[in-house]
Simulated scan of single mutants.
Amino acid sequence: MRKIIVATLCCVPFISFDILYAHEHGSLEAHEHGKIDINVALNHNVLALEVDGPAASITGFEYAPSSTTDKEVAKLAKQQLENPLVLFAIAHNAQCTLTTTNVEGAVFGSAKEKDVHKAESGHEEKEAHHHSDIEAQYSFTCKQPDALKQLDFANFFKVFPLTKQINLQYIGTEGQKGANLTSTNSQFKLNQ
Rank of each mutant, 00 (worst) to 15 (best):
S27I: 05
I90D: 02
F188K: 07
H92F: 15
A22R: 15
F188M: 07
N155Q: 12
A56E: 14
A55L: 03
T100W: 09
V12Y: 08
V6M: 09
K3T: 04
I38T: 05
K164F: 07
S110Y: 01
I19S: 13
Q192C: 08
G60Q: 09
F61Q: 04
G122T: 05
T101H: 08
D133W: 01
E135N: 04
L20T: 02
A7L: 12
H25Y: 10
D133Q: 14
L76F: 13
V46W: 01
T141Y: 03
V40S: 07
P54M: 12
L20S: 01
Q95E: 11
K158Q: 06
V116G: 11
K164G: 05
Q137N: 06
G172N: 07
C142A: 08
A48Q: 06
K126H: 13
E104F: 01
K75H: 14
H33C: 05
V6A: 14
V86Y: 11
S186K: 06
E24R: 11
A7C: 12
T182F: 01
L181D: 02
I5A: 12
G60Y: 03
D146A: 15
K78W: 04
F14M: 12
F17I: 05
A41Y: 03
H123R: 13
A119Q: 09
F17L: 15
Q137D: 02
D133M: 09
P54G: 13
T69R: 10
A77W: 01
H23P: 07
E29S: 15
P54H: 08
S16I: 02
D70I: 01
D37Y: 03
G175K: 11
L42T: 02
L190Y: 06
P145A: 05
G60R: 06
E24T: 10
L98D: 02
Q176H: 09
L190T: 06
K71N: 15
G105W: 00
D37T: 08
L85F: 14
H44Q: 09
G175W: 05
M1F: 10
H123K: 14
A94H: 07
I90G: 03
E124L: 11
T101K: 11
M1G: 15
N39V: 06
I36Y: 03
Y21G: 09
R2V: 06
L151A: 04
E62D: 15
I15D: 00
C142E: 01
S110E: 00
S110N: 04
I4G: 12
T97I: 10
F17N: 13
L76I: 15
G175T: 04
D18M: 15
I90L: 08
D70T: 03
H130W: 12
F160T: 02
V40K: 07
Q150V: 05
G60H: 05
K126T: 11
L81V: 01
H31L: 10
K78T: 03
A154Y: 06
A94N: 14
N93E: 15
L81E: 00
A74N: 00
L81Y: 02
T8Q: 12
R2I: 04
A91D: 13
F188L: 08
N45G: 07
P84D: 12
D70A: 11
K118C: 10
L151H: 02
A91N: 13
A41I: 07
